[in-house]
């Protein structure tokens, strides 16, 4: 492959062009498998309905899963972490300044002690 594209990463190397070649090969194989499948469908029959169980199709706006409903489980599992982290972002300017001054003071102590 083109040597200018290879990235030496210390433990090994990585070549995106070789990787893309692999992707293309995989895509061709996938297409070959796809192309031996069922070719068409009959319009106007039950084949075009979204639910094979015969339920009616809901409104367009109702189908879309809104972002507020995504990752509910993740947020629920990490509730303890978020309950502590989110309230720190108070939006109060005093807290912003205090964090900054506090970090400065902490770094000052650590750097002076270690020097």
């Amino acid at each position: 492959m083109d040597l200018t594209s290879t990235l030496i990463t210390g433990a090994g190397s990585w070549n995106p062009l070789a990787w893309i070649l692999g992707i293309v090969v995989a895509a061709i194989i996938a297409w070959l498998i796809y192309s031996v499948g069922e070719k068409g469908y009959k319009p106007g029959t039950a084949q075009t309905e979204p639910f094979i169980s015969g339920n009616p199709e809901p409104e367009k706006g109702m189908v879309h899963v809104r972002s507020g409903n995504l990752y509910w489980g993740y947020l629920e599992a990490l509730k303890g972490y978020y309950a502590r982290l989110v309230p720190l972002h108070t939006g109060d300017l005093h807290d912003y300044v205090l964090w900054y001054l506090g970090i400065t003071a902490l770094f000052l102590v650590l750097v002076v002690i270690s020097a």
Partner: peptide, 27 residues
Amino acid sequence: FSLLDQVALVLIIAALAMKCGAVPMHF
């Protein structure tokens, strides 16, 4: 790297880390 240099270093590191948005000065 005298004591004064250490103070100066910390003042600059903290200020620039705040300006590039490093936690916990990212608010």
